[in-house]
């Protein structure tokens, strides 16, 4: 199904954080707790969905020469609105730790990249599915990294002030809760993902070679 292929493209084959490395700044800065990662991916989902819809709606009206400035204007307005909404309705400590990363979604390469390569060539429904796919890919990537960092770095999982200590604090590797741990954790997750993808690709190749040699 074509729609499923568009969705899986953003989730697996061109995952923005793990394959094409766009939008890395929030992927490193907000992964210290699972709560922060979840709210950040919610924010990116909101902005990406709305910007894809709007840009797909106006794609025939915008003259081809000035499309990039128009996209930047639309995305900047959307991010301002979403930032003010989140400032009003998010819990205070979460907004403090997300901090300036919400404002920096306006220069996030995922949003502008998707607008430029997909939303200005396809209709609204495909753009919605594509936005959902990419936002889910981003969300899965940073939630996995945040889970890994929080569990091994502090030994506890926390949500809204309550925390559940799974590994005793003396055995937690606090490297992963610090700054350099963000880079190392993301590097390890990227390596794991490309390892899994390589194994799947090799299996497919050997299967295809087998069926080709059997049919001969």
């Amino acid at each position: 199904m074509k729609k499923l292929k568009i969705f899986l493209n953003g989730l697996i084959y061109e995952n923005p954080t793990l394959v094409i490395f766009l939008g890395m700044c929030p992927a490193l800065g907000t992964t210290n707790k699972v709560e922060n990662a979840l709210y950040m991916s919610l924010c990116v989902l909101a902005v990406l969905l709305l910007s894809n819809i709007i840009i797909s709606l106006i794609r025939k009206i915008v003259p081809n020469e000035v499309r990039i400035p128009v996209y930047i204007i639309i995305i900047a307005t959307l991010v301002s609105i979403v930032d003010m909404l989140f400032h009003a309705y998010l819990p205070y400590n979460v907004y403090q730790s997300l901090g300036s990363f919400i404002s920096l979604i306006v220069v996030n390469c995922i949003i502008l990249g998707r607008a430029e390569s997909f939303a200005n060539k396809n209709n609204v429904l495909d753009s919605i599915i594509d936005a959902l796919g990419f936002a889910c890919g981003f969300a899965v990537a940073i939630i996995v990294v945040a889970f890994f960092r929080e569990l091994i770095g502090t030994g506890a999982l926390s949500w809204a002030g309550h925390s559940l200590q799974i590994i005793p604090k003396n055995y937690a590797i606090s490297l992963f809760a610090s700054n350099s741990g963000a880079f190392i954790a993301l590097g390890l997750v990227v390596a794991l993902y490309s390892f899994v993808m390589n194994v799947v690709k090799d299996n497919k190749k050997t299967k295809a070679a087998k069926t080709a040699s059997e049919s001969k």
């Binding site: 350099s180 741990g181 963000a182 880079f183 190392i184 590097g187 390890l188 990227v190 390596a191 490309s194």
Partner: peptide
């Protein structure tokens, strides 16, 4: 991947 670990 190794670039990220080195940056760490």
């Amino acid at each position: 991947a190794i670039a990220l670990i080195t940056a760490g």
